[in-house]
Amino acid sequence: MRVYRWSNAVSLALVLALTGCNAPSPGAAASGVAGDSTSTDAADPGAIDQPYEDVPPATAPPGSAMPGQGAATDSLAHWDGFGEAQFGMDDEQVKLVWPGELVGTPADHSQCYHLSPAGQSDISRFAMMFEDGTFVRYSVSADDLVAPGGGKRGMDTARIDALYPGRVTSSGHKYVPDGHYLRITEDGGPHVLIFETDGGGNVTEWRVGLPPQVDYVEGCS
Rank of each mutant, 00 (worst) to 15 (best):
T134C: 03
L145G: 00
S11E: 10
A71Y: 13
G189M: 06
G35Q: 06
A60K: 02
R137M: 00
G188V: 14
T169F: 11
R159N: 11
G63I: 01
M1C: 08
P211D: 10
M66S: 12
P62G: 12
A42E: 13
S141L: 02
G199M: 03
G219M: 10
P61V: 14
Y52R: 04
T73Y: 07
S25V: 11
G172A: 15
T204H: 02
W98G: 02
Q93A: 06
Y113Q: 05
G68Q: 09
T185A: 08
L115Y: 12
E131C: 13
A118F: 13
A42C: 11
F130C: 05
P212G: 00
A30C: 10
H191L: 01
P99R: 10
M89F: 07
W98F: 14
T157H: 03
A71M: 08
M89D: 00
D54K: 15
A34N: 05
P190N: 15
Y175D: 02
N8L: 15
L102T: 07
M1A: 06
H173C: 02
S64H: 14
E131Y: 08
Y216P: 10
W6D: 13
W98K: 03
I194N: 02
P165V: 10
L210A: 04
Q93I: 01
D215N: 05
G32Y: 08
I160D: 00
D36E: 13
V140L: 04
D74Y: 08
A9Q: 12
L115R: 04
T134E: 12
D108M: 07
T40A: 09
P117M: 10
L210D: 03
G188E: 02
F126A: 05
T185I: 09
